[in-house]
Design a protein around this nucleic acid. Sequence first.
DNA 1: TAATCAATACGGCATCTGCCCTAAGTTGTA
DNA 2: TACAACTTAGGGCAGATGCCGTATTGATTA
Lengths: 218, 218
Amino acid sequence: MNKIRVAIAEDNNLLACSIQEKLELFDTDIQFKYRAANSRELLEMLEKDHTVDAILMDIEMPEMDGIEGTRAVKKKYPQIKIVMLTVFDDEEKIFQSIQAGANGYLLKDEKPDKIHEGIRMIMNGGAPMSPTIAAKSLNLLRNPIVEEESLQKEEFALTNRQVEVLGQLSQGLDYQQISENLFISPATVRKHIENIYEKLHVHNKMQAVQKAQKNRII
Amino acid sequence: MNKIRVAIAEDNNLLACSIQEKLELFDTDIQFKYRAANSRELLEMLEKDHTVDAILMDIEMPEMDGIEGTRAVKKKYPQIKIVMLTVFDDEEKIFQSIQAGANGYLLKDEKPDKIHEGIRMIMNGGAPMSPTIAAKSLNLLRNPIVEEESLQKEEFALTNRQVEVLGQLSQGLDYQQISENLFISPATVRKHIENIYEKLHVHNKMQAVQKAQKNRII
DNA sequence: TAATCAATACGGCATCTGCCCTAAGTTGTA
DNA sequence: TACAACTTAGGGCAGATGCCGTATTGATTA
């Protein structure tokens, strides 16, 4: 079996080295790839070499933090697993990390074998979580946070017709079927969709629908 | 330090004995109190003697199941910690259990020391969760509750690779980009997607991703 | 009044996608 | 040890899609 290729994003040099050392105790099944000092650096490194299976991501980092970084990495490389590794365990950070797509959440004071176990766990589709984190995430599930943000369609200034077309798109209908549903020509549907793409800054149906759903437009 | 007093609610006698035996391996810090064959029996027993710290609760039980039981126990004795212990790991059950107030969720095939660790974890305010359960609860946090339309999910029996491809699809990536991320040929990506369509009974990317999201496959 | 924009509609074209085919190597299971 | 399933890979083809034009009509606005 191939080794699990791991990268680290961590601004504190000492801590990064310490984690790296811990990982290298398990060099039979883990291969350390590289370290970045913040998310932007990580993205640049991934650009050159994205042969990485898992990333240990610090949350607090200068320039671009781990939550933004997780969002960005997951968007481009959704197959890469991300474990948040941090000293803080407040619910807000946990929730944001999970929303950003993190696959696990460990506290930095975990013992080496726990970190190692977590990495193997994540590659098997599990979610490593420190016990206190797990308890807090259960809290979150019990008392759902009411998000006050949800940007609404005004942000993107979509017209009613465009929202309507997006709704049809999200059902997996093609231009022909949408045109029949809305009693317009397929050519018009295509034009509407072109305009939607421009407003949402996307380039295909899937991205448009995902963005629309994320922003509660549909 | 006092021993942790544990009760079990489990209708299957063999399984109950097996768990009890597993626990008695750790009789230095665990004291087994009693076993109930369903939640109603458990409540009666608690009525007489509620000097119990933790309960291992089966979900599927006749008369009164573990989820109702958890709700009832937590209402009367909120200090008692409850670990769901079951063979099933579908998200609906997990979510219901958590809503009912469960403090942890372990699969029955966990090794004895994991169950023991879980009990100690729960008494320290942590939340023991089997890795696959943890991953599913993260899913629940990522995607707010959906109508109970069709939450079978395992019914579709998608392979890991297929789920991975679905994840890439949902980001709006095309076959070429997906093939680069996964280091396979675009032809293979197309084949994977064909197979996904067949399993999900859909005919295009959007329908596949929407169905996968609705069923929490991704 | 002129300008802007939404909604409608059409044509072209390169690329992408869905669907059909075959096929080989691997893994897991009965 | 067979058999099934998964993963990999490729060819071919019709139709769908993304993107570039253009154009008319009506409503709103500066």
